[in-house]
């Protein structure tokens, strides 16, 4: 028996929108402490890790650990039928080949349930080693989205370099080059507007902008984004979900052979 009631249903809608274009199918792993998902994109270049802890739910019941394979496109179609203010409940029964999404309007005058077919997914759960990062940049998520979008109109790859001067995003393409430098800026009215650079050692790495732009679909989930880099490791682009968990995107770098 599985029953999860999320008052802020729009959060689940936003989570789905942030990952559905990167990952087609994924196993949702439910346990008493919350639910998680880990999946690679079909090209095996990026990996999504999602965690939503049980504390964030108004009601959370999961009698035994269970894994449900879902097509994220289909799940997104169903969740789009929920209003932004709706309360969403996920229900499942042991051994069932379906999951039910129930949507309640805030005034309880409209209640809908959508039953979705589950699927068997052969997933490879990868071990992500703990890492010490050379540099961690925390910045407004909207600013990061703007930079990725702007640079993608010039080139296909971005070089992200962190030095004590700041963080530089560079690209080059047929029409020319672009460099955007952000300096650490903590003298802002609101903490979420700050750019904070923690650097142990300078680092410079190259990534595909197509993936970075896909990650920025998570922007509505959080005012800030954290970018963690070390040479020879995938970059981690993390959007925290207030008091509940996170969506993390890992992207393998482009490297000289």
């Amino acid at each position: 028996m599985l029953e999860l009631r999320l008052v802020q249903g729009s959060l689940l809608k936003k989570v789905l929108e942030s990952i559905k274009d990167l990952v087609n199918d994924a196993n949702f792993d439910f346990s008493s402490s919350g639910f998680s998902l880990q999946s690679m994109d079909s090209s095996h270049v990026a990996l999504v890790a999602l965690l939503l802890k049980s504390e964030g739910f108004e009601h959370y019941r999961c009698d035994r650990n269970t894994s449900m394979g879902m097509n994220l496109g289909n799940m997104s179609k169903m969740l789009k039928c929920a209003g932004n203010d709706d309360i969403i409940t996920i229900k499942g029964d042991d051994g069932s080949d379906t999951v039910t999404f129930m949507f309640e309007s805030p005034t309880q005058d409209k209640i809908a349930d959508f039953e979705m077919k589950l699927m068997d997914i052969d997933s490879e759960h990868l071990g992500i080693p703990e890492a010490e990062y050379h540099a961690i940049v925390k910045m407004p998520s909207a600013e990061f989205a703007r930079i990725c979008k702007d640079l993608a109109s010039i080139g296909d790859t971005v070089v992200i370099s962190v030095t004590k001067e700041g963080v530089k995003f560079s690209t080059r393409g047929d029409i020319g080059t672009a460099n955007i430098v952000l300096r650490q800026n903590t003298t802002v009215d609101k903490p979420e507007d700050a750019t904070v650079i923690e650097m142990n050692e300078p680092v410079s790495m190259t990534f595909a902008l197509r993936y970075m732009n896909s990650f920025t679909k998570a922007t509505p989930l959080s005012n800030t984004v954290t970018i963690s880099m070390s040479p020879d490791l995938p970059v981690v682009v993390e959007y925290k979900i207030a008091e509940m968990g996170y969506v993390r995107f890992y992207l393998a770098p482009k490297m000289e052979e």
């Binding site: 690679m40 095996h44 270049v45 990026a46 990996l47 490879e124 759960h125 990868l126 071990g127 992500i128 080693p129 790859t157 190259t206 595909a208 020879d232 490791l233 995938p234 890992y250 992207l251 393998a252 770098p253 482009k254 490297m255 000289e256 052979e257």
Partner: peptide, 14 residues
């Protein structure tokens, strides 16, 4: 041109 690495070359299957 740098080559795109696979995520599988960094993270291990159990």
């Amino acid at each position: 041109m740098p080559r795109q690495k696979s995520i599988l070359s960094f993270f291990q299957k159990p």
